[in-house]
């Protein structure tokens, strides 16, 4: 992975805040995040939202890799039971639970990974999830929680 490290932020080290990765479903949560922008509600900028048709695609190892690489927290924002792919949501929920167990075994705080359902106009729940994760991670970096 030597090649991507040539991003040139002006102050490369100045993002001290732990990074939050948001995996947002194409049909619900991603438009939901757009909606939050459309109403100009603000939330911390250490959030990186990636669009995904169905987060069920990610194997357990993917989450662990992300943490290893330096992502502090992951929020999987799914469609819940409005999921367009049959059976996918239940599998996703199960997988997230497995990853959280694994995290506990590895001595990581499982709260760094969350799963929630966000609809296309769910601004409030979206902001709540982001703020909670951000608050949790800030607290964690000050030492009171193991990350």
């Amino acid at each position: 992975m030597g090649r991507v490290d040539r991003i040139t932020d002006e102050h490369p080290m100045n993002e001290q805040k732990p990074k939050i990765l948001v995996l947002a479903t194409e049909s619900c949560a991603y438009p939901g995040a757009d909606y939050v922008g459309q109403i100009h509600a603000s939330y911390p900028s250490n959030t990186y939202i990636l669009r995904v048709p169905a987060p069920v695609i990610f194997p357990e190892a993917f989450y662990l890799r992300c943490f290893e690489k330096g992502i502090a927290g992951i929020i999987v924002m799914a469609c819940g039971h409005e999921c367009p792919y049959e059976g996918a949501y239940d599998r996703l929920a199960r997988r997230v639970a497995v990853v959280r167990t694994r995290m506990r075994e590895l001595g990581m705080d499982p709260q760094r990974l969350r799963l929630c359902s966000i609809c296309t106009v769910c601004a409030r729940p979206f902001l709540k999830e982001i703020h909670e994760m951000d608050a949790f991670l800030s607290q964690a970096t000050t030492g009171s929680v193991t990350t």
Binding site: I7, P12, M13, G70, I71
Partner: peptide, 8 residues
Amino acid sequence: VDAIVATG
């Protein structure tokens, strides 16, 4: 993800 976490 590599790009997001790259140290710059």
